[in-house]
Amino acid sequence: MLEVEDLTVEVEGKEIVHDISFNVDIGETLVLFGPNGSGKTTLLMAIMGLPRYRVTRGRIVFKGQDITQLPVDERAKMGIGILFQRPPVVRGVKMREIVRACLGGREDGAVIEQLAQKANMVEILDREVNYGFSGGEVKRSELLQLMAQSPEFVLLDEPDSGVDLVNISLVGEMINELLQKDRLRSRTNSGLLITHTGHILDYVDADRACVLLYGGIWCRGNPREILVSIKSHGYEGCAVCQK
């Protein structure tokens, strides 16, 4: 579904991600581990197509189409969605409006309410987007928008950061729904999940994992095994480990 080939990305003239290649199959969830500053967010933003993240080499192929030069809204329309780790506050724009926009502009109040209920966000529908939101509210707001958007490919940037124990299981449930984890077969949605701590993996199963270090893929393997290793040796352990 997604193929990333020799991708190099710079931010404000500085190269952050170097020659990364990987792919995510239909129905698959790939988890990307890595310490702060390893280039995880940069990689995700480049896949989403945010202009600040400039691809200088390589290409991104989604559903067989080269999307490397496609603007962000076109990628969203093709079925890519993203959970931002630190989304901006959009003053004046209400949650209800952004959810409606994610639904493709259909004026369906009932669907919006229903989705908001799932995200435990009903009270927040009439608040301005991300304005004064707690850490948990930010994540639930992002997931509510994604559920309305219903993307085939979900980019999840640290869904477990700044989320307390009460919220994390709800966040996990919503991600599982987005990734159709209830289906054993015929799963069509895929995801690329970034986590620094790995907490989210207590709630969401991933099929494969990569460790990102110094802007490159350091190793690939089984998510559980890699997580166990990171937990016991830290990312410092990865750094001394043979590539």
Binding site: P51, F84, I98, A101, C102, G104, E128
Partner: peptide
């Protein structure tokens, strides 16, 4: 903010309109 809304599928013009309307 514009890019954030565009990541939800709004065109650039739609995103600007939504922000201005909200403003």
């Amino acid at each position: 903010e514009i890019e954030y809304l565009m990541a939800r599928g709004l065109s650039r013009d739609q995103a600007i309109a939504a922000i201005v309307r909200g403003f």
